[in-house]
């Protein structure tokens, strides 16, 4: 009989846990390879990276403008502010587009290609698949934010050098302290955007059309930002997924009060938990007929 020689299933606890972690790691690496090996995503990354380049070149050639905001006004003094300026202008739309596209693709893309059925009969446990997908979205989100910040910092430092890092409070920080603040902003925005990714993962389990899932998430983002503008709706503002995004400005104060980021982190964590759970509830028993 050509029975498979399955590895013993009654392994000791630690060995089994280690192997399970290894198996998770393999699929997770494969997932990252799928995301980062795809040309479409590289093009998206280039578009994200072009914004800080554009900002830096325009300000270098024309000088600082009259009515510039604080962040833009600081660019000529410290190149790191190119990164902050780029994150600020990409946060409402460009970064959400990138996250929505990847999150919408997570399950719906596999369903659309038909590869979902082959993953499931391999078998990949459905909860494990969602965990791997959410992990992939999180890594991609951080990479997208880091590309904008990294390219911005590099071209900013190249064109404007590293002068005083002036905080919103008026004090000056050294180069490394300034860089640390920028890293903190990146982490905060990643947490906020991963919440959007979790919403996308949930939507992605509802359809076989990755584009439709991505657009749905983008619509959620834009509508949330519009509602956040209407003062009549102040009562619901704190429940909107985008409401706390701009709180990263707290990091630019001196001394920095991390407690100011608390509500944003809590909101993002709640959105991530609720929608990851919803995705699981929907997907764990769903009929896969794609």
């Amino acid at each position: 009989m050509s029975a498979v020689e399955l590895e013993p299933t009654a392994e000791a606890g630690p060995a089994r846990t280690a192997r399970a972690a290894g198996a998770f790691g393999r699929l997770f690496r494969s997932e990252l390879w799928l995301i980062f090996g795809r040309r479409r995503n590289w093009v998206g990354g280039l578009i994200l990276a072009s914004v800080p380049v554009l900002i830096a070149v325009v300000i270098k050639t024309s000088g600082a403008g009259e009515g510039d905001s604080f962040v833009f006004g600081q660019i000529t003094d410290n190149g790191l502010f190119v990164a902050l300026a780029a994150l600020t202008v990409e946060l409402p739309f460009f970064l959400p587009i990138a996250v929505s596209a990847i999150a919408g693709d997570a399950v719906a893309g596999e369903a659309n290609l038909g590869t979902l059925r082959y993953l499931l009969v391999t078998p990949v446990d459905r909860a494990r698949l969602l965990a791997v997908k959410l992990g992939g979205i999180a890594v991609f989100t951080f990479a997208a934010v880091a590309v904008v910040a990294g390219v911005g910092a590099l071209i900013g430092l190249a064109l404007f050098g590293a002068g005083d890092f002036v905080t919103l409070s008026g004090s000056s920080l050294g180069f490394w302290a300034g860089l640390a603040r920028l890293a903190l902003v990146c982490c905060y925005l990643t947490i906020c955007l991963v919440a959007l990714g979790a919403i996308g993962l949930f939507v992605s389990t509802m359809t076989e059309q990755p584009i439709a899932a991505g657009i749905t998430v983008l619509v959620v983002t834009v509508v949330s930002q519009i509602l956040d503008q209407l003062s009549q709706l102040a009562a619901i503002h704190r429940f909107l997924p985008t409401h706390y995004w701009l709180d990263y400005a707290a990091v630019l104060r001196d001394p920095v009060n991390l407690g100011d980021l608390g509500p944003g982190v809590a909101s993002a964590a709640a959105y991530t938990a609720v929608f990851a759970a919803a995705a699981w509830a929907r997907f764990s028993t769903a009929d896969v007929s794609s």
Partner: peptide, 13 residues
């Protein structure tokens, strides 16, 4: 095929 193999947690890497 490498991706499908990676998905099979009972397959030694």
């Amino acid at each position: 095929l490498m991706r499908l193999d990676a998905a099979d947690r009972t397959a030694p890497a």
